[in-house]
């Protein structure tokens, strides 16, 4: 059951839901420059999602295109990790989520660029450059907030603590997949350890490790996100936009 369609869908859903959350910041960012940067990252994620979902639809061979997959599935059919669907919270929570996501996506896309599937390799080659920027941007903010004021340090540590449990799901082993996520954990840990230390933040102990997103068992947040995202498309069945 965990063939290339399922794998591609997981990556596409991660990117789509991340884009939807990041785009919620539009016109609300702490600085105008950051509004531009967050929109930029949302656009990168959305672009990757479109490529991945289009390809997933082709692999499935049931005639579903990117919009059919994005707009006409319910939350139980989505395969994204829980991390990306968590609410944005304050700016520190958003940066913690983005930092962990990018620290996972960069080695993932890098490995994908060398995989045997040509389409996935091309998507990985494009997306890894974008992920490198996302990681750079998020890590800069983690350092700024961690080593900024007392208030920002408190918020950044709380954000890291609150999101940390959700990173473990990203690395669940899947040896048959084009890239086995378990093989990415070393890179992720190195990045996270280095940046958190520079940011004067404490790396949380691992205890609770929620999961289920890859099987379509999500948090309560996802169906609200999808209700908003899908409402107009579903209100006009068959319409072109």
């Amino acid at each position: 059951m965990h063939g290339p369609f399922e794998f591609t869908l997981r990556l596409g859903d991660d990117a789509l839901v991340a884009a939807q959350r990041l785009a919620e910041w539009t016109s609300r960012a702490p600085e105008m420059e950051e509004d531009v940067a967050l929109a930029n990252i949302a656009l990168d994620q959305l672009g990757a999602a479109r490529l991945l979902l289009t390809y997933a639809g082709e692999l499935e061979g049931a005639g579903r295109d990117e919009d059919a997959l994005a707009y006409l599935r319910d939350d139980r059919e989505f395969r994204n990790c829980l991390l990306v669907e968590l609410p944005n919270g304050d700016f520190a929570v958003t940066m913690a989520k983005l930092f962990f996501l990018a620290a996972y996506q960069l080695p993932l896309y890098t490995a994908l660029a060398g995989c045997a599937d040509e389409r996935l390799a091309a998507i990985g080659a494009k997306a890894r450059k974008e992920s490198a920027y996302h990681l750079d941007h998020a890590a800069l903010w983690v350092r700024r907030l961690g080593d900024g004021t007392e208030e920002s340090h408190r918020r950044m540590q709380a954000a890291v603590d609150g999101t940390w449990p959700y990173v473990h799901e990203l690395f669940a082993a899947d040896p048959a997949a084009p890239v086995d996520p378990a093989t990415l954990r070393g890179d992720f840990d190195t990045t996270v350890t280095t940046v958190l230390a520079e940011a004067t933040l404490t790396r949380p102990e691992t205890g609770w490790t929620p999961a289920g997103g890859r099987d379509g068992v999500h948090t309560e947040h996802l169906s609200y996100l999808l209700a908003e995202m899908q409402v107009l498309h579903r209100a006009h069945p068959g319409a072109r936009w």
Binding site: L16, Q20, E24, L46, R50, D67, A70, Y71, M229, V231
Partner: peptide, 10 residues
């Protein structure tokens, strides 16, 4: 957040 296609959203 409600754009009716991914292309229009982008």
């Amino acid at each position: 957040s409600r754009a009716p296609s991914l292309k229009r959203k982008a």
